[in-house]
Nucleic acid binder design. Structure first.
Lengths: 121, 121
DNA sequence: TAATAAATGCAAATTATTTGCATACTATCA
DNA sequence: TGATAGTATGCAAATAATTTGCATTTATTA
């Protein structure tokens, strides 16, 4: 398995990005790389555990580097995705399900961010 | 002219189901209803706030009735989805993001459920 | 350098979902 | 009751996101 130029670029793009990116987003940033290659590379990184695939909403999957585990807050108006962290291990203690061994917690907050939103949709 | 026979059936199917269902799932249960109608009805119910659309994983969206707000635990082995409830209002108090007004919280736990899983994938 | 294996691009296929349009239904009103 | 209006439905086709097949290129290693 190789870390080729293309894959480096894709990883760099995700690394530099504040937000999670879709395959199409990455393709806009790196138009010289074929979209198919981007899909394949992303899948490759997901399997390698280097990035995470999110199905936040809508139809496109989003990808992001797991710099450190974190959660998401999504604005109901503008769909902006904000990252935040909490102490997951502490938090998990508050949950316990009979017959379920919790390995990981994902929190998604929904609400309104403080940007000017023109109109409700 | 809102709650038609077809829509009743779709709602009933979701109501009876233990799990969240995809449009295709519902269509299998109600093959006499056109898939397009199912999509349209689901969208209609989502807008009406009667059901919730989930993008848990994979490519298909899942729909479920919001009997009461709850969260999901997903088994990493068998993808079974377990529902659980917590006191959301209490929980939300533990989170606060500058510049973000939280309206809702969604928690997804991942882990292993206590069913016999034959082999890791 | 030759041999091997993986990576890439292109075109086409697949899957999930949506749209356009004609028809059918249902409630209301004259 | 019959006309009218507005929505619901089905069918076919369109779209969007993603995947696959296959030929070609590139990298890796003996």
């Amino acid at each position: 398995m190789r870390l080729t130029k293309h894959r480096q670029e894709i990883l760099d793009t995700l690394d530099k990005s504040e937000e999670a990116l879709s395959a199409a987003n990455i393709h806009s940033a790196l138009p010289h790389i074929n979209l198919v290659t981007i899909y394949r590379s992303l899948e490759y990184f997901v399997k390698a555990g280097e990035i995470k695939k999110l199905h936040l909403d809508g139809q496109e999957a989003q990808f992001e580097i797991q710099h450190e585990p974190h959660h998401h807050a999504i604005c109901n108006e503008c769909n902006k995705v904000i990252h935040f962290t909490v102490n997951d291990t502490e938090l998990i203690k508050e949950f316990s399900l009979p017959g379920f061994d919790i390995e990981n917690i994902e929190i998604t907050l929904r609400g309104i961010c403080n940007q000017k939103h023109s109109s409700k949709t």
